[in-house]
Amino acid sequence: MALSTLTWVSMLVSLLLLPGVAAAVLVRSLRTEERKLALLREQGDVDSYSPRALSDLREWIRANPDDPYAPIARRRYNECVRSLRGIDKPHYDWSDEQIARLELVDE
């Protein structure tokens, strides 16, 4: 039985959006782990937040200084800043200028 063009398109798009994406995510996830492990072996430490994620965390700390979770947030923020200052190769896409502009927050 010959499939219609619409059926072919429907099938191929499904294959692309499901097994295609799943395979791509699997490969990316495993490669990310490999890279992180290599950095950890090399430097003994790795940055834990991306620039956008750390910026979000900083904004949240500023907006919620008295939140019950603020001490944990400040600790995690400072831990990432210290890591970035102590390592040569960040895991995330940090530039030297971005790292230089980072400041610790009062814990």
Partner: peptide, 11 residues
Amino acid sequence: VLDLNRNAGIY
């Protein structure tokens, strides 16, 4: 902000 994006593979 606190945990989901920590060491995350995607933002």
